[in-house]
Amino acid sequence: MNFGSFLRPPPLDPKLKVVGATAIFQNCTRQELETLQPYLHERHYLAGEIVFDEGEVGEGVYIVISGKFSASRKGVLKKKRLGEIYPGECFGEIALLQATPRLATVVAAEPSVALAMFRPELERLAEARPRLGFKVAIEVARLVAQRIRGLIEGATEPLILS
């Protein structure tokens, strides 16, 4: 009889594994990821379905679990495609810090699944678990800073700065 299997923790939820791989949550421990689970809302999108519109007030971040999303901005004559977002990436992270208008429209390019985290819920989590809240907030700030730098240097479009 293998007693080691009793002591080993059950395998981590595959969705949480993807969450743990995203830039925002990369420094979270397994226990912290499990604490986050009740705050993550699973959403299923059909190909062509809009996740959010440019200009709409943002309330949370989306972490891509499966499928593909594409982001675009209104151009002078036609829409300007900003790029694609794949599993393990996130979009809309500024909304985790502040309720500001989204900078891009995000549409599901194929049937996709995303986990959404809502700003007021992150605030509540930070109230109860300040260390975890700080970890998430600092990673969001880092990601935003990195994207702003990329934007200034002309390397990237404000793809997910929404």
Binding site: H41, R43, F52, G58, E59, G60, A116, F118, P120
Partner: peptide, 20 residues
């Protein structure tokens, strides 16, 4: 979370805000 699952995607963020 169970209640939120029943909310259509278009109204999801607004409904979360409502609950909050």
């Amino acid at each position: 979370r169970l209640v939120m699952r029943a909310v259509p995607n278009a109204f999801f963020e607004k409904t979360l805000l409502l609950f909050d």
